[in-house]
């Protein structure tokens, strides 16, 4: 080693004649791919591919899908408009307009609560920040599609009655 401290120079192994003649090596490679091909041809059903719209992969309970707002027994939102979620949101996608609640024990309620689903990064920080477990991402919905941008800005009513199919 002429220079101390420098990494050792990696030398590639010298190829033998048959290796550098390619043809034998190519035939070996063909055997490998051919094995895969035959196996998949004969056992089509065992392929790991999930036939998506018909079959679905099971996601864990912690999977973060589309948000929903939880309700009290009387159907009003559990949210107290404390702005914790919109403050912590890294994508700044939650917009809450607070209003005085009739019940002094509750203080505030969200007059409007909108989430821009296109900006949301599905990080789940809003769930964790919420002091009264009002927002959750446990719907398991991940197919979110619409044909205009405005449809992705969902409001309080939508979030309170979040149905399971993916249409907005």
């Amino acid at each position: 080693m002429p220079y101390k401290g420098l990494p050792e120079v990696v030398t590639t192994r010298r190829r033998s004649f048959w290796e550098s003649a390619y043809f034998v090596e190519i035939c070996k490679g063909l055997a490998v791919t051919g094995r895969h091909l035959l196996r998949n041809l004969l056992h089509t059903g065992e392929m790991p591919t999930v036939q998506y719209p018909e079959q679905r992969r099971d996601y864990g309970p912690r999977f973060r899908g589309r948000h929903r707002l939880l309700q009290r027994e009387d159907g009003s939102p559990r949210c107290v408009a404390c702005m914790m979620c919109s403050t912590v949101c890294p994508a700044d996608c939650i917009e809450i307009v607070a209003a005085e609640h009739a019940d002094p024990a509750i203080e505030k309620y969200p007059a409007s609560f909108t989430i821009d689903l296109l900006r949301c990064v599905y990080c789940g920080l809003c769930e964790e920040a919420c002091p009264c477990d009002a927002i959750r991402m446990d719907t398991g919905i991940y197919e979110i599609a619409a044909d205009n941008r405005q449809a992705f800005v969902v409001d309080k009513d939508f979030l309170l009655h979040n149905d399971k199919d993916g249409t907005l």
Binding site: H36, L41, T49, Q51
Partner: peptide
């Protein structure tokens, strides 16, 4: 189809 089967795809 061949490339898919060679690469274990459908």
């Amino acid at each position: 189809k061949g490339s898919a089967f060679i690469q274990d795809r459908t």
